[in-house]
Design a protein around this nucleic acid. Sequence first.
DNA 1: ATGAAAGCGCTAACAC
DNA 2: GTGTTAGCGCTTTCAT
Lengths: 349, 349
Amino acid sequence: MAKRPTVYDVAEDAGVSIATVSFAFAKPERVKEETLRTVLASAARLGYVPSANARGLARGRVGALGLYSFDYLMRHAPAAATMDLNPPDGRLFPLYSDEVQRGVELECLTKGYALMLGAGTSSPHRPPIVDVAGRVDGLITFAGAADPKLLQQVSRRIPVIQLGGETGIPWAHTVLVDGRSAVRDLVGHLLTVHGHRDFVFIGDRAIPEIGQRYAGFAERLTEAGLTPPPPLPSRPDHDEQTARSVRPVLTRTPLPDVLVCSTDQEALAAIDTVHSAGLRVPEDIAVTGFDGIVAGRLSEPTLTTIRQPMQTVGRTAVQMVTSLIDGVALPEPPVALECRVSIGHSCGC
Amino acid sequence: MAKRPTVYDVAEDAGVSIATVSFAFAKPERVKEETLRTVLASAARLGYVPSANARGLARGRVGALGLYSFDYLMRHAPAAATMDLNPPDGRLFPLYSDEVQRGVELECLTKGYALMLGAGTSSPHRPPIVDVAGRVDGLITFAGAADPKLLQQVSRRIPVIQLGGETGIPWAHTVLVDGRSAVRDLVGHLLTVHGHRDFVFIGDRAIPEIGQRYAGFAERLTEAGLTPPPPLPSRPDHDEQTARSVRPVLTRTPLPDVLVCSTDQEALAAIDTVHSAGLRVPEDIAVTGFDGIVAGRLSEPTLTTIRQPMQTVGRTAVQMVTSLIDGVALPEPPVALECRVSIGHSCGC
DNA sequence: ATGAAAGCGCTAACAC
DNA sequence: GTGTTAGCGCTTTCAT
């Protein structure tokens, strides 16, 4: 690690100017064949690795995108190495956000962008999201992961794409997913195939995406001549909160037919709650989710859910930011990605 | 995106010098209370986002680590959005490397480092790994993912940690996993619990980690008075190659008792091959793997395997690079992480 | 075809 | 406590 060689070192070693070294790497055709060879040879011998930061500074573009996720990532760590040895149940990894991230990674690679994740030194005046933003040409963030005020500030510097969340925010574009009609389909399945009539919805309608799902739920029930119940409060990242909402429901007589949950994580928590109340899924009560995460396929019973095209969501986001970076306007109105009902055993099928 | 505000803009707006702006963010205590407020207010109003690149350039450290993975990531993408809607079988994601990556991500976050993934502009003279290396303070790479020559070159500039692969390479440190004794345990299980005697090993002994696994295999068989067979050629990322090695084995009379595979991916490919030959696992022949990936728990039958502490591998790597960055020498000799046998149905249990 | 020189945005002495 | 200034390593006109 002695002293990191720079253009100057290479230039001196090759007996040329730093400009020539720069050209040798950037526009080889502008340099005489022989000079090129000399320069490249010196570079290789010295172990020259160009500083992408300096290049970024000089050019005004660094060639990297940023992805900012929830910090509850942190909570999904095995506490000790021995825990890591027991096959995990998928309740921790991979989650929805991980599959989206994978899509982002893939698209970045194909497009030749490096991807910057998470964040650094949380000095009081430089919050993580700002830190990431300062390192990249464009930013993708999960809705709700960062303070909207900061996001807005960041969006004055670089394009920002939000995954999920409200559309129509002037300073951020979003990738849309059509959860509403998928939930309509799912409720239709529960109504017609299973003959369910007594529905419970679990989830926080205040989250825009969940609001859409609830809308689909309510619409379909209304069409069937039923009165949609208000949603029961719950959060995907808070199993105990979900349990608190589910428990009272399980004492009703008669039991409702089905718990329609706004995410798979909540559905899995609900199933746990049902089980610990001594009841069975789906015999006593059916449960459905939304997302299509891996854990839903490892659960007992397997989860009936709605699958989002998670990787495609990530890829789409990358396509959107890179367009904006290149100064290309996004198509209006934005296309909403399609979801699909995925039948498991938890609905009674 | 108009014009990105810089320290100069903030300084002018706040009526101070750029140094004061810099201090306001870096060492707030060194600035008078009132000045601090003024500066922060200007910064907020202008939408100032500090450039991490410029800071990195000036300080000689950027506060980011790099992770370089296999480029066969690219092949693991759903070809179309509709494919993405069908619940995947886990054969594509998450793989071994994804779980390790997760560990790297988590540890980076807790340590306040940003994480740079994959790479960019493959100009002929700036290969991806060099590109990543030019953006970070330390690099983690999967063994075999990059050209050793380039790695060596990079290691002159920043510390490099290799995941798996040979130890004793002077220019790179590696995270060790004790696969050998775990395979010994697994073979012991197959010998004593199932009474197997006729073993087949599938995997490429030339890959250092796999070589270790084969060593454990051979040792344990020898102890039991059996003669270990030579390994059958195979690669984790090449199902057809695995199939070609397995097919001839299935025509032997009598059939071998068990196929001990060097990775889960090869084991899953082997199971497919057995099935398409019209045979059953484990009734006709048992199969075991190594790694403990998610797909092994979704397969039919579930896979008996050896679970690596994948997240811990990633976290350990981060701890190692950051130590090196801070100028702290690594303990000698390196500790090898422990693996554990994970029983599924594919061994006959 | 190659070199000289002016930045890119920020940090860190050092001076006031 | 705050301002001046010299770089950090590279790109990029503009000359030659």
